[in-house]
Design a protein around this nucleic acid. Structure first.
Lengths: 234, 234
DNA sequence: CAGTGGTCTAGACCACTGT
DNA sequence: CAGTGGTCTAGACCACTGT
């Protein structure tokens, strides 16, 4: 179909990052010419992309690439790629480092190990449409972290752990807003001090053993987070 | 706008129940004539309604009224009307009975009262677009149920309770499929034995006191239920 | 076969934005 | 003012369904 050609071309350019967020798309008149189709057909294609959340239009000004704002349902206990699978975004991860470190106070308490005990730290950057949206710092008890050694960590860790015999149960989540620490500013492409969301998530085995304590430093403009809440916090 | 006239007229007919689910709408050609608009305008209106989930189209056959299939997020601890507020459906409730009864075994355990103790029972029918979708049986400890006496129970009970000083905390939910009991078949407009969903929901105060034990007998074709799950039940 | 929705064209007038 | 997206018309050809 003609309209699909318009969709696919623009979608590819957006998902690849070639057209970054808030870029103006060619005008409808230009798209008519370059694709050799009528205006209705151009508009049907644009409407499809708008429905996917990839573009938005402003009368008198033009159509623009949306900033990806995926809904990340944190209570479903899904990894980043699992959660993004149903979204019209191109989700990628990049392993930054994998090392053994001494547990600091917070990590030690969360993972129920002694302060200074050796734990496995994994740092990864998550991208949507080629732009960084979050930085993940995960800490695992040593015996569990070792099962991830020499694995491909560009995907989700949860399914990987499960395939290696680690069962997951429930997780607990804390959310706060803070200024972006200098150490993470470059990887997130924001200025230090920019308000970001920090999520801390502890995932437990079905029997309550700590499996993973994770910090996510998230650009606030990238996600909508969803957490099922009690009616009133108490 | 012309297309809005098409939308509004059809939407009103669907929400009022005048056009029941699976009814064929007038053909696009007929709508063009009766509204005096072009085909594109008719189709834009139809697309809006399809986006709202109110109609669906089959090539070569026609366009039809959708069966309302709302997503009812049960874990959010919302009442029926609260949950439906964002849906394009016309949600109504009807009080069937309000009485004091002796607690049977299951209710007594759930509400932590003695078997045979007096509890308040409220029976209500819930409708979407004028058609019955579920039958609710709610049981309250007597002191709480009494606060609902002489209240308007056509809306949600949760906000009503809260306005009368009862705080709600969390709820637990059980789901099962069963044949529709004869006693409820008429109110649900199904034949006895038709597979329906039975939900049992116990709602607790923030301090863990049982507030409400509720059975929902739901037509399976009316809802999509959503419950956040643990990764693996255990 | 007649009737349905799916796709597409060429053209019009409009409201709105920015210069 | 020129350029943008928003709405709408009249008409065409098509694939599909049911008789």
């Amino acid at each position: 179909m003609l309209r699909d050609r318009v969709c696919q071309k623009l979608r590819q350019q957006i998902l690849s990052g070639e057209l970054p967020p808030h870029t103006r798309l060619p005008s409808e008149a230009n798209l008519m010419k370059s694709f050799g189709v009528s205006r209705v057909t151009v508009r049907q294609g644009m409407r499809t992309l708008a429905g996917e959340g990839l573009i938005y239009s402003l009368q008198g000004r033009g159509s623009f690439v949306s900033a990806p704002r995926a809904t990340y349902n944190l209570s479903a206990l899904l990894g980043f790629h699992e959660a993004m699978r149903s979204m019209p975004f191109n989700a990628t991860s990049r392993l930054l480092s994998f090392r053994q470190v001494a547990a600091d106070r917070e990590v030690a308490i969360a993972l129920k190990v002694k302060r200074g005990d050796s734990v496995v730290e994994i740092r990864r950057a998550r991208c949507l449409n080629g732009r960084p949206v979050s930085l993940d710092l995960s800490y695992f008890p040593r015996d569990i972290g070792e099962r991830l050694q020499n694995q491909n960590l560009d995907g989700d860790i949860f399914p990987l752990l499960e395939s290696r015999g680690v069962r997951l149960g429930r997780s607990r989540l804390w959310i706060e807003a803070r200024g972006c620490p200098e150490a993470y500013a470059v990887d997130l492409s924001v200025a230090p001090g920019t308000p970001i969301l920090q999520l801390s998530r502890l995932t437990l085995s079905p029997l309550g053993r700590p499996i993973d304590y994770e910090y996510l430093f998230c650009r606030g403009d990238a996600f909508q987070y969803k957490v099922e809440l009690e009616r009133h916090p108490f």
